[in-house]
Amino acid sequence: MRWIWIDRFVEFESGKRAKAVKNLSAAEDHYAQHFPGYPVMPATLILEGLAQTGGILAGEANAFREKVVLGKINKARFSREFLAGETLEYEVELVHMRPEGATVVGKVLVEGEVAAEAEIFFAHLDQSRSKQAFGESNFVFTGEMKHLLDQARRAGATNHGTVV
């Protein structure tokens, strides 16, 4: 299974904010189990999409030199269920950046209405666990992420004149 829970970046302002969309499809495997006869997008996967949007925003702010990993989600609030056929908009804002990590606040919108909110804290792996060696290659921003990053760059260039 491909572990990409956003489809496309539509806005990207380097070091400040980003917006991505995710179309929910009935073909996604998780609907078979969650729940049989009542397909609802798992809230954890919604958070994963929000975290991917925020993680790329935080990573780009340091030119992807850091291994940005999800540290903790302090608060998350959901006001409705999410169903196949809906389009989610993930809006994230970078509220704090330090050498050791970053904090973003994010919203999930469906048809312009806020359907979920979360605050997400990311750690920079090498900086926050300095005694541990993770090698040179950045395994966070690789493979599938690269395609999204290109999209982010294009979105940035189109919407805000920000070439990342």
Binding site: G71, R98, G101
Partner: peptide
């Protein structure tokens, strides 16, 4: 936990 210490500092 260790990650909380970073969060607290932030």
């Amino acid at each position: 936990e260790s990650i909380d210490f970073l969060d607290i500092v932030f």
